[in-house]
Computed example of a mutant assay.
Amino acid sequence: MNRFVKTVNPSAPDLGSLYLKYGEYYGIRGDIAFAQAVHETNFFRFTGVVKPGQDNFAGIGATGPNNPGASFQTPEEGVIAHLQHLFAYATTNQLPNQYPLVDPRFHLVNRGSAATWTSLNGKWAVPGTTYGQSVLNLYKRMVNFSIQNLDSIQKEIQY
């Protein structure tokens, strides 16, 4: 995942393992959430209103030039907030409590209203009629990159 992003932005942070770790904890596909972060941040180049120092990889609360959205203390906290926000959309279940709630907009989400990526359309990004498809297409590009580079990736894997 990190290698894919670095083909576009060599300075991108290595967040793939955090997305996988916390995605598993929250029951959210961390690999696809990572693709969403790539989409939201333009490959972690932050070309929109959210800036890198905010560690806001999901654009949480960003609504325009005068409102760049939430800021988080660390990249790890930003990843957790992103996954908590997705959790709010995905289910009405109580948030697991191993980590504190850091998503400032968690309680503003219509809980359980988007159990699939494409059902985020019109909810995560407005009007966003193809938002979920854009995230999934980016995820497919990431998977295809991994398949095409399997030989070199396998050489890096330690057994």
Score class of each variant (00 low, 15 high):
residue 62 A to L: 03
residue 28 I to T: 13
residue 142 M to Y: 14
residue 142 M to S: 15
residue 95 L to V: 06
residue 117 W to G: 08
residue 118 T to F: 08
residue 155 K to R: 13
residue 3 R to F: 06
residue 122 G to M: 07
residue 52 P to V: 13
residue 151 D to H: 09
residue 65 P to L: 11
residue 26 Y to S: 12
residue 39 H to Q: 15
residue 78 G to Y: 05
residue 109 V to P: 00
residue 65 P to S: 12
residue 51 K to N: 09
residue 36 Q to W: 05
residue 93 N to S: 15
residue 84 Q to I: 08
residue 5 V to L: 02
residue 43 F to P: 02
residue 135 V to F: 05
residue 28 I to S: 11
residue 90 A to L: 08
residue 129 T to N: 14
residue 73 Q to M: 11
residue 155 K to D: 07
residue 151 D to N: 15
residue 109 V to H: 04
residue 72 F to A: 05
residue 65 P to R: 11
residue 109 V to Y: 01
residue 102 V to H: 06
residue 103 D to N: 02
residue 152 S to Y: 04
residue 130 T to Q: 06
residue 50 V to E: 11
residue 35 A to V: 03
residue 132 G to Y: 04
residue 93 N to V: 02
residue 21 K to Q: 14
residue 40 E to Y: 10
residue 72 F to G: 01
residue 25 Y to P: 09
residue 76 E to H: 02
residue 37 A to C: 01
residue 3 R to Y: 04
residue 38 V to R: 03
residue 93 N to T: 00
residue 102 V to N: 00
residue 152 S to A: 10
residue 80 I to T: 06
residue 136 L to R: 11
residue 41 T to F: 01
residue 79 V to H: 00
residue 157 I to D: 12
residue 64 G to P: 05
residue 104 P to W: 05
residue 82 H to P: 04
residue 156 E to W: 12
residue 35 A to G: 08
residue 125 A to M: 04
residue 134 S to G: 12
residue 49 V to K: 10
